[in-house]
């Protein structure tokens, strides 16, 4: 059985290649990336989160974390229209971006670890959102997003169009 660290490393690599493919085909913005690292949830501050969860031999969440400015830039590029307001189309575009990254990762994982299921994307937008794992209290309050784990996120930092964004991963082996 592969050690979870190896699986996480392999998925981080899949996230990078899936994000690159997406930007080369449908977003058409330049893309640079750095090495992935573990980031404690308390260090995460963002405006927009696009999340897709997956289940199978491993379960977890793939999340896109970005500024509203970057979300607007991506949505404008995808729709070939200059958007200045944070409309539902912008949230929809962030959801689709998260979905396409996660879908690509899932295809690669399925080949290695068997069939997996993806959720429909969820997009949360606000100002300076943070993430907190609340043990035994799965309550979402204010702009704090409750998460399923206190484990750190494996974050891969990207820069595109002069804006930073991150794609994060939370992963657990499923109990048989």
């Amino acid at each position: 059985m592969a050690a979870i660290e190896g699986v996480i490393e392999s998925i981080a690599s899949d996230i990078t290649s899936s994000t690159k493919t997406l930007f080369e085909t449908m977003i058409m913005l330049d893309l640079k990336y750095d090495e992935s690292s573990l980031v404690d949830e308390t260090q995460i501050k963002t405006d927009v989160i696009g999340m897709v969860s997956f289940t199978g031999k491993y379960h977890g969440v793939i999340g896109l974390f970005c500024s509203k400015r970057f979300a607007l830039k991506v949505a404008s590029t995808m729709l070939m229209t200059e958007l200045s307001e944070f409309t539902n189309d912008v949230k929809d575009a962030v959801g689709e971006v998260s979905n396409m990254i996660a879908g690509n990762v899932k295809t690669k994982l399925t080949a290695q670890y068997g069939d997996m299921n993806l959720s429909i994307p969820i997009v949360i937008a606000g100002e300076g959102l943070s993430i907190t794992a609340v043990n035994n209290h799965p309550v979402v309050s204010d702009t704090t997003l409750s998460c399923f784990s206190k484990d750190p996120w494996l974050m891969t930092p990207f820069i595109s169009g002069g804006e930073k964004f991150n794609v994060g991963l939370l992963l657990k082996e499923s109990i048989k």
């Binding site: 995808m78 729709l79 070939m80 539902n88 189309d89 929809d92 575009a93 959801g95 689709e96 979905n99």
Partner: peptide, 12 residues
């Protein structure tokens, strides 16, 4: 498609 953005992209 449940994404209105994706429907617009495909159409365009």
């Amino acid at each position: 498609d449940d994404s209105a953005v994706m429907r617009k992209i495909i159409q365009r």
